[in-house]
Design a protein around this nucleic acid. Structure first.
Lengths: 335, 335
DNA sequence: TTGAAAGCGCTAACAT
DNA sequence: ATGTTAGCGCTTTCAA
């Protein structure tokens, strides 16, 4: 059986409390006593039982991170950032994925998937405001990503509208006039709405029409969805001179289609992605992309959850992380 | 405060045990009683406190998964498989990453990073046999991946030597005679040794020399490392007619270099990767790759850990997962 | 500065 | 079929 505080106490000939004091680095312990107890701890190989500690303190030292899908490298990289930020505060991360499906997101937000957690970081796709209204769960929740909710939770994201505008502006600056948007979402909910809005606003500001025939809706957000959307646009006979994709995998999928059809990037069609995943830097044509500060997002998310744990209840905040546009061959061409 | 069993019992006018019986779906409860208790549970919004349950049962319902890095899509996809397999058994996954560094791997294997877990799935890179010898931790450990250890732990992997041989054989079948290997590892430990061995064996079997000038060692396993290694080989003046990379990101990095130098894939140099990540299917030239059955690996890993939890102590097994070689444009060319 | 004892919420052995 | 109770390992008053 495992050794408990009691065993150590018996071995050292002291009380349980004294051992506990040593384990928890309590101030007022004489060095001699600390020494003696520590010796017993080492001798017996004592390791505190966290379940018991948690039961007692009501804390588990675990935060959950629920992402749409790990296959998308953006989320994988984000997960890495969150794990590191959590580790820096002695927290461990439970990872879950929702597939971006509302039902799963609701389950997660209600705490039905992971129940041993001190806090939850959720990046929703389809989740609706009303799903969060009757949240029985009282563990702190922090929201990530493009969807915005008018609810009292911290929300961390970059300014998606501004970022999308910057991307489109970059294309305009290169003389492109017909910019397609790939990755609007089918159905009622519109996860991509902020980026579509940025696209629309920037075109309008430039005095250009925003042609819905150039907006391709998709079911998912992977390479294949981007490829399918690009194909669909081309098959209508439209020939835009630029494409702005909801994310990098979709942009890369689109480029694959362009390449296969003999269209040159960027000479014939320039392409801009979103998220700046590593993969975009190593294709035959490197990808221009909006690069959110993932490190910061991960760190801010962890800080937000933990802040609410301390009993402090700061007002819910909308936190803006940085981003920048990384210009590469898919818009600038080969230097 | 949270509602406890006691609160529900009081509300329903029954004993704690009865409520517990209902919550745990104990057999012998009259439907009427079950109904009545359930009503109280719903009314009060009772949710079991897992910390307490775990303290009592000595189980947490959590398994840890420690991977080298999430940025590599192979590991991200594997993580997804493990999470799903665990969910199917009502288990939740704590995710950690080691950076493939021995020190971190040791920490993880000793349980110093996550201590509230029922089992651990570890995919080591630098870890040495002796690091596992004095494992104080008694939670079940399952090993994943290419490194093999002569130790009493379950180990799940594909047959790396055979898979590497299949890849090289495919190249030989296409008439290639000078096959470089990218991604051998610097330093004492050799995570890539099985794949290098397969490469060597197959060349030897074909009566070809295995030229060490065609083996490029790297520090990491990312796109950039593959690109650097490819560059190094080319700059020695060597011009192999094929490249076999340790993994897909390295293969893609290498293809980027070839493309930038005007070398055609596969006409001038054919390329084969390993892991079959999604990204390889959408480049300008799609990538031929060894495709391990990630689903199966994830499932087998979870099953292995959980099997050892049941008190059963089956003999440690070496479990072989399936793989296949997926042939694409980087060796076959454009159809 | 250290010890004794209560109790966190739950399960399981035992009693009814 | 349901109730009583001890105790999982720890932290935390409270007392010495």
């Amino acid at each position: 059986m495992r050794v408990s505080l009691k065993d150590v106490a018996a071995h050292a000939g002291v009380s349980i409390k004294t051992v506990s004091n040593v384990v928890n680095n309590y101030q007022h312990v004489t060095p001699a006593m600390r020494e003696r107890v520590q010796r017993s701890i080492d001798a017996l190989g004592y390791r505190p039982n966290l379940a018991a500690r948690h039961l007692r303190k009501g804390r588990t030292g675990i935060i959950a991170l629920a992402l749409p899908e790990l296959g998308n490298p953006y989320f994988a990289e984000l997960a890495a950032a969150v794990i590191d930020a959590a580790a820096a505060q002695d927290y461990i991360v439970l990872l879950d994925h929702t597939g971006g499906r509302r039902e799963q997101e609701v389950l997660v937000s209600q705490g039905f998937r992971a129940r041993v957690i001190d806090g939850l970081i959720l990046s929703p796709i389809e989740l609706e405001t009303e799903d969060l209204h009757d949240r029985a769960e009282q563990v702190p929740l922090v929201l990530l990503g493009e969807r915005e909710y008018d609810l009292p939770y911290d929300h961390i994201a970059i300014d998606n509208v501004a970022a999308a505008r910057a991307a489109v502006r970059h294309l305009m600056g290169l003389g492109r006039r017909e910019v397609a948007f790939i990755g609007a979402r089918r159905g009622r909910s519109e996860p991509a709405q902020l980026r579509v809005r940025g696209w629309r606003e920037e075109l309008t500001a430039a005095g250009l029409p925003t042609d819905d025939g150039l907006v391709a809706a998709t079911d998912g957000w992977g390479h294949a969805d981007g490829a399918a959307a690009m194909t669909r646009i081309l098959e209508t006979g439209r020939r835009p001179d630029a494409v702005f994709a909801y994310n990098d995998p979709m942009a890369i999928g689109a480029m694959r289609v362009l390449h296969a059809r003999g269209l040159r990037v960027p000479e014939d069609i320039a392409v801009v992605g979103f998220d700046d995943v590593v993969e975009g830097r190593f294709g035959a044509v490197t990808l221009t992309s909006v690069s959110p500060d993932k490190e910061a997002i991960g760190r801010l998310a962890v800080e937000s959850v933990l802040a609410r744990l301390g009993g402090e209840a700061p007002d819910p905040r909308r936190i803006r992380a940085d981003y920048r546009l990384v210009e590469r061959e898919s818009t600038l061409g080969r230097r």
